[in-house]
Computed example of a mutant assay.
Amino acid sequence: MAKGMIEADGDAAANRRGRPRSAETTNAILQSAYTLMATTGLAATSIDAVARHSNVSKMTIYKWWPSREALLIDAFLDHASLMLPLPTSGTPADRLRSHAAAYAKALQGEFGKVQLAVISECISKTGSAEIFFERYLRYRRAALVQLIAAGQQDGSVGAAGAPEDLYDAIYGSLFYRYIFEIKPISPAQARNLVDTLLMIRRR
C-alpha cells in the first residue's frame, strides 16, 4: 500500500513537470539510495553518489525529488514497503500482531539503523521530523489505524481507545525501546505488546 502511494505521488509530480517517470529508472535510484545508506552511511549518500551508483544523471534525480532528504525518505519508504508489507489475510488482530512482530525484527538489523539515521537527518536539516512524517509515516500510520478500527468493529480488538492512540502506544513503544536499547525487543515481545494494549485473546 505504501509503495503504491509513493508511485502515485511520484507520478503526479512527474506529470506536473511534463515528463512521466520510468519505473526502471525510479527503482534504480531508490534502490541505490537505500543500499548506500545501509552500507556507507547517510553522510556518504549524496546525490552525486546515488547518481553514480544508479547510473542516472543528477539532473534526473533533481527533477523527481525536491531535496536530498525527500529522496532518502522515499528510498526508505520503498524498502519498507517491500520488507514490511501490511498482511492481507487473517483478522485485523492477527494482521496487527504479525506486522508489529515483523517491525520489531526489522529494527534489529540495518533497517532500524537506516530509519533512525533518516529521521535524524530530517531533524538536523529542518529542525523537525515533519518531512519524514509527511512522506512516510502518515501513510503507514493511517493504514494501521484503519486496521485497528476494523478490529474494534469486528470484535477481534477488545480495547476501546482511539485507534490513533493505540497505534502510537504500540509502535511508539517499540521505537522507544529500540532507540534507548531497552530489552527485550523481539517479535515475541511485540506480539505480547499488541495483545496487551489491544486486549486480544490468543486463540
Results as ranks from 00 to 15, higher is better:
Ala14Pro: 11
Thr40Cys: 08
Ala44Glu: 13
Leu36Pro: 08
Arg21Gln: 09
Thr60Ala: 11
Ala12Met: 13
Leu30Tyr: 06
Arg52Ala: 15
Ser54Pro: 09
Thr26Glu: 10
Gly41Asp: 10
Asp48Lys: 12
Ala28Leu: 14
Ser22Asn: 14
Tyr62Pro: 02
Ser67Met: 01
Ala70Thr: 06
Tyr34Phe: 14
Ala33Tyr: 05
Leu42Pro: 00
Ala38Tyr: 01
Ser54Leu: 11
Ala23Gly: 08
Ile29Pro: 00
Asn27His: 13
Pro20Val: 08
Gly41Glu: 09
Leu36Met: 13
Thr60Ile: 05
Ala38Asn: 02
Leu71Pro: 04
Ser57His: 00
Ala12Trp: 11
Pro66Leu: 00
Ala13Lys: 11
Ser22Thr: 13
Thr45Arg: 03
Ala23Trp: 03
Ala51Pro: 05
Trp65Lys: 02
Asn55Glu: 12
Leu71Met: 13
Ser32Arg: 05
Ser32Ile: 04
Ile47Phe: 08
Glu24Gly: 04
Glu69Asp: 14
Ala14Trp: 09
Ser46Trp: 08
Lys58Gly: 10
Met37Gly: 02
Arg21Val: 06
Ala33Val: 08
Glu24Ala: 13
Trp64Ile: 00
Thr35Ala: 10
Ala12Ser: 13
Trp65Gln: 04
Gln31Cys: 06
Asp11Trp: 04
Ser32Asn: 05
Ala49Gly: 06
Arg68Pro: 05
Asn27Ala: 15
Ala51Leu: 06
Leu36Ala: 10
Thr40Phe: 01
Ala49Val: 08
Ala23Lys: 13
Ile61Arg: 10
Ser22Arg: 13
Arg17Trp: 07
Ile61Trp: 08
Arg17Tyr: 08
Leu42Gln: 11
Lys58Phe: 04
Asn27Asp: 15
Glu24Leu: 09
Glu69Ser: 13
Ser67Trp: 01
Ala33Lys: 07
Ala38Met: 03
Arg52Gly: 09
Ala38Gln: 08
Ala70Met: 04
Ile73Trp: 05
Arg52Asn: 14
Ala49Ile: 09
Ile29His: 05
His53Arg: 14
Ile47Glu: 11
Ala43Glu: 14
Gly18Lys: 01
Lys63Tyr: 07
Ser67Asn: 05
Arg68Met: 06
Arg52Gln: 15
Ile47Tyr: 05
Thr39Asn: 15
Ser57Leu: 00
Ser32Ala: 15
Pro66Met: 00
Arg21Leu: 12
Trp64Tyr: 11
Arg68Asp: 07
Arg21Ser: 08
Ser46His: 06
Gly18Asn: 03
Ala51Gln: 08
Met59His: 04
Thr39Cys: 12
Leu71Glu: 03
Leu42Gly: 07
His53Trp: 00
Ala28Gly: 15
Arg17Cys: 07
Trp64Glu: 09
Tyr62Phe: 06
Thr60Gly: 00
Ser22Pro: 11
Val50Lys: 09
Ser57Gly: 08
Thr45Leu: 01
Arg17Phe: 13
Ala51Asn: 07
Leu36Arg: 11
Ala44Asn: 10
Thr25Tyr: 02
Ile29Arg: 05
Ser54Ala: 15
Asn15Ala: 15
Ser32Gly: 11
Leu36Glu: 07
Gln31Leu: 09
Ser22Tyr: 11
